[in-house]
Design a protein around this nucleic acid. Sequence first.
DNA 1: GCCACCATCTTGACCGGTACAGAACACGGC
DNA 2: GCCGTGTTCTGTACCGGTCAAGATGGTGGC
Lengths: 363, 363
Amino acid sequence: MPRVTLQTIADRVGVSRMTVSNAFSRPDQLSPALRERILAAAQDLGYAGPDPTARALATGTTGAVGVLLTDSLRYAFTDQVAGGFLGAIATELAPTGLAITLLTSSGTGDVVPARDVAIDGAVVYSCDPASPAVAWLRRRHLPMVFVDQDPADDVPCVNIADREGARAAAQHLADLGHRRFAIASALLEGHAARERQRGWSDVLDPLGVEPVFIRHPLEQTEGVRRDARALLSAADRPTAFLCYSDTTAAGVRQAAADLGLRVPEDLSVIGFDDGPVAARMQPPLTTVRQDVEEKGRVAAAALTEAIRRARTGPDGPVRHVLLPTSLVVRDSTGPAPRTPVRPAPPADPPADPPADPPALSRP
Amino acid sequence: MPRVTLQTIADRVGVSRMTVSNAFSRPDQLSPALRERILAAAQDLGYAGPDPTARALATGTTGAVGVLLTDSLRYAFTDQVAGGFLGAIATELAPTGLAITLLTSSGTGDVVPARDVAIDGAVVYSCDPASPAVAWLRRRHLPMVFVDQDPADDVPCVNIADREGARAAAQHLADLGHRRFAIASALLEGHAARERQRGWSDVLDPLGVEPVFIRHPLEQTEGVRRDARALLSAADRPTAFLCYSDTTAAGVRQAAADLGLRVPEDLSVIGFDDGPVAARMQPPLTTVRQDVEEKGRVAAAALTEAIRRARTGPDGPVRHVLLPTSLVVRDSTGPAPRTPVRPAPPADPPADPPADPPALSRP
DNA sequence: GCCACCATCTTGACCGGTACAGAACACGGC
DNA sequence: GCCGTGTTCTGTACCGGTCAAGATGGTGGC
């Protein structure tokens, strides 16, 4: 059976296709009586309203905006910090009626969502700016907002004071007398990783401190735990751990627990993000706070603004927003121990013993 | 300046529009040499490939599938169980290149994503089947899959054995000798809430046990905590708490902690879902396990299958999948105390004292 | 040398709507 | 009776692609 379109209804009612279209999209353009008749006929024929695809082509708007994330979409739903950010975008966007389309940065083969999916604009969240997906979005001349990303001149950007936050964290530990540092950083060299690294270096370099590094993909707390354990088993083990995120810090603290090291007496640990878990840890985690909800709200607002601009023409330079970070001192940091405690052999050996040597490196 | 379309490129190269289209979408339909020339011209003109909207209209596919969620999208990113489910959908869908469009069940005013956004199909996750959004999707004759939803004959459904799981939970506590029950249920009367209620009643009714109820919106642990505290302060307080989810159970356990009640000695608590937090609680939570990842995978597979069917014509009846649940006994449940302990006044009064009376009800 | 066949490119119709200008008609004022 | 105004509806031209069938020219078989 053939599909029901505007024409089907028009024929049935005996009016022009355009009038039927108006019945749905411009109620003020026809008499209420006729509109009722048309709507009734539509109902009768099982017509579900103007086809979104066709309407999108004709009007030039799709009613959806994209959110470009790193390769793994799962991350968006699993990580609490990313989740908070996306949730805030969703609530900010809700009144506008715009749906959110999730796009992955990694195109698998011939289908590339960033190139092939119809959207009105996009938020690019913490992606490699050189990735093909970002390039496609740019070529499409879509209204965009970059978040946690190297700023670009021609695109609105929302960032946080990564460097200042990291600096505050390192300074806090330095003030407490620590001089043997380890850093648990991200494996991927993103904007945030680079900036935080700079912040840590701002403090540590002048002190002549050379931290030991471990690097892992985000969310891989087990790897962090294993490598941190190896690091903390050494005779000249670090007394302070700077971490890329709260999740990373959780891995480090598990390693400390494995080895019977007390936090903060034997080891100070500092996180980043101040996500939901930070305050719930025992003892609560000292960390660098960022307001992910605000970041989401600002990003969503910037995107709707960019879309508006694309329609009405630009009215001023693109805005770059930098949100503040602040050090939240809780109980996972304390004065450097006089003589670093050699970790006692753990009471019962951890389920997953350190098998392979940790990935050490100095930049 | 005018937009670059296929025609622009066709004019430039001196071929027909169709040939340019083929250069992008059907490389085998023209000589490699000409294709190179066309692609070069396209590159030159800053053409980003065929317009997704127009292509969608012509081909009838959009490259995106919808996921319809309850009113609050934030929930999708915040709740770990929902997150696990959606993450599994995302990974299962990744190889197909389909993007995921998030739709809210509550249309705000004139824009209704479920009616107005172009998609190839949709997963309906735990929504009110009578909601307008579901009705719109159905009227659009979109390929659909219902998840955690009252089954419909003409739609593929994926559900879990809610009732059996709840029954096992209640039976476990009954076997331990408990006879004074409280139930922390969901505020919204969804499919899962109803089924679990049935499962609990299957066990409690024959025993003549009349549980006390508290109900709260999902994720509102503070409300649960407050009302549970009031309930547990009574002289004839319950010794066993059946909870709608692990999150709910966490609220109940906080209430117990507030009152100095020990779990499981003074109070047995049982959750539902076996999410990430269940095993991490102290002591670990006894709960009903469901495999949300599997649920996501099955749902995604069922959706691609439904989309395929819509194209090629049906080849058999629609499938209904019921995934198993199982009771995971950990350390939050134990034998019913002989004489229920009257809770001692808490050491330090909780930050948020029970202000208003709890919402008690018997069904 | 003729015809079938293939690769390559073109033509015209169509996907299902919307924008915009204008036609038809009723109404009120003078 | 005429004209300006407003409402209501229609006609035509798009929006930017793809599909299916046809034109064209070169190749190979016999």
